[in-house]
Every structure is written in C-alpha cells, then in structure tokens.
C-alpha cells in the first residue's frame, strides 16, 4: 500500500514537473494542479500504513488508529490549493484577453527583451 502510493506520488510529480516546464500557460496551470495533488497524496502517505487501523473517530472501539494529523494538514492544503487555482484561472483569462495568447514563447519572445516599464 505504501509502495503503491510512493510510486503514484513519483509519477504525479514527474507529470506535474513536465507540464510546468511547458511553454503554454494552460499546461503550467494543469501542471500546478497535478503537483499540488501529488503533494497532498505524499502527506497522506505520511500517516503510515493504514490497513487494519481504525478511523480516527471517537467510536468507543479500542485499537490502533490512523494518525489524523496529516489528514488535517491535507484539508488545509486542499483549501489553499483550491483558492490559488481559482486565482490562476482568472489570471490566465486576463492574460489571454490582454495578449490573445497564453504561450510563453509569444509573450516573452526574443524580439521583446525586458524594457523600461515607465
């Protein structure tokens, strides 16, 4: 179970990194979404081997329970990631409206070196 998760996290990190290195900002956005999910999964795996453990609820049963702290962390991280993703989507839309492209090569091409903004 832990090994499967580790491999999945590795694959997701690789995909996310690959997408973030692309030139299209839409792909960068998807790369970021995949990356944040990979990280969430990584933290989930940090609560240890979950099989034959009880859910961390006060049910009166006794026995080993899954560590609840990583789950609390993920909950926070998901909310933050959701907010940031929403912001990124809007920013991407604004970028598209302004420049009619979301491709980094067109936006920052060699014909346009950093210029004086004033």
């Amino acid at each position: 179970m832990q090994l499967d998760t580790s491999i999945l996290v590795g694959v997701l990190f690789a995909c996310g990194t690959f997408l973030i290195l692309q030139r299209s900002f839409v792909k960068i956005l998807f790369g970021f979404i995949i990356l944040s999910n990979a990280v969430n999964l990584l933290i989930l795996a940090m609560s240890g081997e979950p099989s034959r453990k009880l859910a961390p609820l006060m049910t009166g049963e006794s026995g080993a329970r899954v560590d609840p702290l990583p789950q609390a962390l993920i909950l926070t991280a998901i909310v933050i990631g959701f907010g940031v993703t929403a912001y990124l989507v809007v920013l991407l839309y604004r970028l598209f409206l302004d420049h009619q492209t979301t491709n980094a090569a067109d936006l920052y091409g060699p014909s346009k070196p950093p210029e004086d903004p004033s």
Binding site: V39, N40, L42, I43, M46, L69, P70, L73, A77
Partner: peptide
C-alpha cells in the same frame, strides 16, 4: 508542503 510532510 512536501517538505513539511516529510518532516512530519
């Protein structure tokens, strides 16, 4: 976030 998870 990943580093925090690994620290934990």
């Amino acid at each position: 976030l990943a580093a925090a998870g690994l620290v934990y």
